[in-house]
């Protein structure tokens, strides 16, 4: 297995892992959003979806563990690469001008860490319901109420919206970038690939934000 170690230790192998795990999580995020949007179909729709998920049993745990592994690898390798990147330039420029690098690409570490922080809060809040006794008191599958109660608090809703825009920013670079890392960059498709990231980023940010926005505006209650 020397080859595996050699590959994952390498610059390109490390990026591959970040790209592949990132792609897996994008898949999760898309699925998650699709589920969440059922909230617009009323309590029945979203609650039975949640119930269905819970009843997957062992399969759910496989998914959860898989997701945890993906997230961990993504974070560990991203940080490892980032530390190496910092070490590669011990003396900074007095003046540095960027010609091409997008704002999103330059803030990947920050948006990534912010998202990690938010995900931890998000899990504590919605999955473990450890942040408020009110949510803990709700029935197991009453996801609808949980959403509405939470997002009626502007602070929670605001934090959620901001985080989803950070997610969008992170993916606007990350998704286009993973094609390059995986070795797909062809002049014929360059513009298309370049716009997939920003497009998906905006779409996800708007999709996720629509729920707290709807709650705040009283469309969901």
């Amino acid at each position: 297995m020397g080859w595996l170690r050699q590959t994952t230790d390498s610059s390109i192998g490390g990026k591959l892992i970040v790209a592949v795990t990132g792609l897996a999580m994008v898949g999760f995020v898309v699925a998650h959003l699709s589920g969440n949007l059922l909230v617009f179909g009323g309590p029945q729709a979203v609650n039975s979806y949640a119930e269905g998920l819970r009843k997957l049993g062992a399969l759910l745990w496989v998914a959860r563990i898989g997701l945890l592994v993906m997230a961990t690898l993504h974070i560990v390798f991203a940080i490892k690469l980032n530390l190496a990147n910092r070490a590669a330039r011990p003396q900074a420029y007095a003046v540095k001008t960027y010609r091409r690098a997008s704002f999103a690409s330059r803030s990947m570490l920050l948006t990534g860490l912010a998202l990690l922080g938010y995900i931890l809060f998000h899990l504590a809040h919605f999955t473990f319901r450890a942040t408020s006794p009110e949510l803990a008191a709700l029935g197991e599958y009453d996801v609808y109420q949980m959403i509405v109660l939470s997002f009626q608090q502007p602070l929670i809703a605001g934090l959620y919206i901001v985080s989803m825009f950070l997610l969008g920013l992170h993916l606007s670079h990350g998704v286009s970038s993973l094609f390059q890392t995986l070795g797909f960059n062809h002049p014929k498709y360059r513009n298309l690939v370049g716009s997939i990231g920003p497009f998906l980023g905006v779409l996800l940010a708007l999709g996720f934000s629509s729920i707290p926005a709807a709650v705040l505006f009283g469309l969901l209650k």
Partner: peptide, 13 residues
């Protein structure tokens, strides 16, 4: 990698 160059962030600078 051994020489101590960094990794690619696909920023295309």
């Amino acid at each position: 990698d051994l020489e101590g160059f960094g990794n690619c962030s696909n920023q295309y600078e």
